[in-house]
Simulated scan of single mutants.
Amino acid sequence: MKAHIGDQLVVESPTTGGIRRDGEIVGLHHEDGTPPYDVLWSDTDEVSVIFPGPDAHIRHLEPRSKDSPAR
C-alpha cells in the first residue's frame, strides 16, 4: 500500500451494514508512501496515526489547486 498526501484512506467495516470510515492522509512517515499514515478522519476531524489493515484501501485523489475551496 502506497499513498500520497491528500489521498483518502477508506477503512471498510468488518460487519455487514457496519460503518465505513474515511479520512484524508495528511502526513507520511516514509518517503516511499508506505504506512503508517497521519489521517484526518472525516467523522471526528481528529488526526491519528494508523497502520492500515487488510480492510483498508487508498483512493488516489487529484491534488487540489490553490484556487479550489478547502473541505
Rank of each mutant, 00 (worst) to 15 (best):
L61W: 08
V39I: 15
P36Q: 15
T15C: 10
V11D: 00
P14C: 11
V11W: 04
E12H: 13
R20C: 10
L40Q: 05
L9G: 05
T16H: 08
D7T: 04
G23H: 03
R59L: 09
P54C: 13
F51I: 08
K66C: 07
H60R: 12
D43H: 14
F51M: 10
P52R: 03
I58S: 00
E31Q: 02
T44I: 09
L40C: 05
Y37I: 03
V39R: 01
D32R: 14
D55G: 10
I19H: 01
D67F: 11
A3E: 02
E62R: 02
P52I: 08
I5H: 05
T34E: 02
E62T: 00
V47W: 12
K2H: 12
V39C: 04
G33I: 13
E12R: 13
D32Y: 04
I25D: 10
S42E: 14
T34R: 06
A3N: 08
R64N: 06
I5M: 04
I50R: 02
R59D: 09
Q8H: 10
G27C: 09
R64F: 05
G17P: 07
P35Q: 05
H30T: 00
E31Y: 00
D67P: 15
H29F: 15
E31M: 07
S65H: 07
P54K: 14
G23V: 09
G23T: 06
E12I: 04
L40S: 10
D32F: 01
H57F: 15
P69S: 15
L28K: 12
A56L: 00
P14E: 14
D22P: 05
S48Q: 07
I5W: 02
V39Q: 05
I5P: 08
I25W: 01
V49F: 04
G23D: 10
D22G: 02
R64M: 12
I19Q: 11
L61Q: 13
R20Y: 09
I25E: 07
D38K: 06
R20A: 13
A56H: 05
I19P: 10
G23P: 09
H60C: 12
V49R: 14
P14H: 15
H4Q: 13
T34N: 03
I5F: 04
K2N: 13
L61F: 12
P54A: 13
P35I: 00
T44E: 01
I50T: 04
L40H: 06
T34S: 07
I5T: 02
G6D: 03
D38G: 07
S48M: 08
L28C: 07
I58V: 09
I50F: 01
S42P: 07
L61I: 15
F51E: 03
R59F: 08
P14V: 13
P69H: 12
P14I: 14
M1I: 00
T44W: 06
S68F: 14
Y37G: 00
I19W: 04
H30L: 07
V39H: 03
D55E: 11
V26Y: 03
A56Y: 02
V11E: 01
D45L: 09
E24L: 04
H30C: 04
V49N: 07
V10G: 06
A70F: 01
S42G: 01
G27L: 10
E46G: 06
V11Q: 03
A70V: 11
G6L: 07
E24G: 00
G33Y: 11
T16N: 06
H4D: 09
V10C: 05
R59C: 11
D38W: 00
S13K: 05
L40A: 00
D55S: 10
L61S: 12
